[in-house]
């Protein structure tokens, strides 16, 4: 924690435990996520990356059997404090889900929904501008600009995923959680999204779950390696990929487990 290069911490989690009924999905995880940085979560399937990500915007609240304990703070405020309204939290912490889930409405309405309910647009032109910017950033504008009023569910899987990214950034969150945002994208769209992530880093803190080691190495400054619900190793991306401390990390990134 005394690391000089460490920027100011945006999210700090201590002793986080998550149970799904009898499944112990996250075991005593401590992590510090810095502001204006990209943090990558990597690890084998089922190790709890999505679960931990969902703790940060309290989406786990919606799962009846899910129990979260421990301490998670954003800007020093305990987000599990009874005084915290999860709705307000989620406006601040945007999320792109693992499976693309556009609303069965028009592309425009998908993106405009968040700004509308949060009162971010002053008028129609303003809203149009927000929608356009979000779609541009998500690298969807060129494909979508002529069919803004066509249904979002009529897009291809990869386009839907970018639409969900556009929807998440349209509400101008401070933290963006992305659960495998490029899993359905071709290399060109992936590159565009990675560019976007890099751009977002200027103003937000971004957490990205990915199964691609190259992607983690390319976009993130910090990397967290999860294994069976444990946070095995967390630190500078360069260090994790070149000189991991834990043997499990090493075997995972070299492709021996997972």
């Amino acid at each position: 924690m005394k690391d000089k290069t460490m920027t100011q911490s945006k999210i700090s989690a201590k002793g986080v435990q998550v149970h799904y009924a009898d499944t112990h999905a996250i075991k005593d995880v401590d992590v510090e996520i810095a502001d204006k940085e990209v943090t990558a979560f990597i690890g084998p399937s089922g190790c709890g990356k999505s679960t931990f990500l969902r703790c940060i915007n309290r989406m786990n609240d919606t799962i009846g059997i899910c129990r979260v304990t421990g301490d998670i703070r954003i800007d020093g405020e305990d987000i599990y404090d009874p005084k915290v309204d999860p709705v307000q939290l989620r406006a601040k912490v945007g999320m792109v889900f693992q499976k693309p889930n556009p609303f069965p409405k028009s592309i425009y309405d998908n993106v405009a929904y968040g700004p509308k309910i949060h009162g971010l647009a002053r008028d129609k032109d303003d809203l149009d501008q927000i929608v356009e910017n979000a779609l541009r950033k998500a690298a969807l504008w060129n494909e979508a600009k002529d069919r803004l009023h066509a249904s979002g569910t009529g897009l291809s899987g990869g386009q839907q995923q970018r639409l969900c990214i556009a929807r998440a950034i349209a509400t101008a969150p401070e933290v963006l959680l992305m659960d495998e945002p490029c899993s359905a994208l071709d290399p060109i769209a992936t590159a565009q999204v990675e560019e976007l992530i890099d751009e977002l880093r200027q103003s937000y803190s971004v957490v990205i779950v990915t199964h691609s080691m190259q992607q983690a190495a390319r976009v993130s400054q910090k990397t967290a390696f999860f294994h069976l619900g444990n946070l095995v190793e967390f630190g500078e991306t360069d260090k994790i990929f070149t000189n991991p401390e834990d043997p499990r990390t090493e075997s995972y990134i070299s492709g021996r487990i997972g």
């Binding site: 989620r90 945007g94 889900f97 968040g114 309910i117 949060h118 929807r167 509400t171």
Partner: peptide, 17 residues
């Protein structure tokens, strides 16, 4: 599908919304 509810809650809609 529950993913629609997740999507709405994820952009900061309240349960009622």
């Amino acid at each position: 599908p529950p993913s629609i509810r997740d999507a709405a809650l994820g952009v900061g809609a309240s349960k009622i919304q």
